[in-house]
Amino acid sequence: MHIPDGYLGPQTYVPLYGVSIIFWSIAQKKLKKQLSLKHVPYLGMAAAFSFLIMMFNIPVPGGTTGHAVGAGIIAILLGPWTAVIAVSVVLIIQAILFGDGGITAIGANCFNMAVVMPFISYGSFKLIKGRAESGKRMTVAAFFSGYIGLTAAALFTAVEFGIQPLIATGVDGRPLYAPYPLSVAVPIMLIQHLVLFGIAEGLVTLLLLKYFLKHERDLVYAIADPSGNK
């Protein structure tokens, strides 16, 4: 889902940089207020943990393995605003150090995976979980938080790809950037994530959350803060 350089025109990547900067500023202010002096090492830790989650391949039923994008579980464990900074830092490091995602697309990638995904995952987890503290409802909430969050991020990515032929064309009317129209980009990205990657993300989120609930319940932000107002 990491968008490389060359697929988004400036009409798309410049505004998305702007939106991401707004979210980074809000997240930074919120966390600084909550954590005071601790916020810098705390966010460094959260980002490193986010990076490492992505490195673990987990066997999923069906004989294959998958790894999480991790934004959903990070949002549940540490809170959505922490996830905004943590996942953004990871995406920036991945883009600069590993060529995973483009330099011009950092704003878009951060918006999709570090803003949309954590908030949708966290919101759907709180919504589905309701007042349940354990049991099947919690299990369903954990799975769908990862599943819905990743699928929503994929949808946003697909829309960003799909609008390129509409907003950035040459004099001959042909697309200058991503060539696939919305009618192709959206179904392809959605089908992949609805039937494969979303399920893997959901299972990984569920598995990790179950472990934390069993052994380290107090460390889970979404449980420790039932109002979700943090």
Partner: peptide, 26 residues
């Protein structure tokens, strides 16, 4: 799966401990 989930949790706790240490050092 149980082992990997446990190791991820362990890494999480290690990172928290390390951050506390770094903070104290700061």
């Amino acid at each position: 799966r149980e082992w990997i989930a446990g190791r991820v949790a362990f890494i999480f706790m290690k990172t928290r401990l390390r951050y506390e240490e770094v903070f104290k050092a700061m």
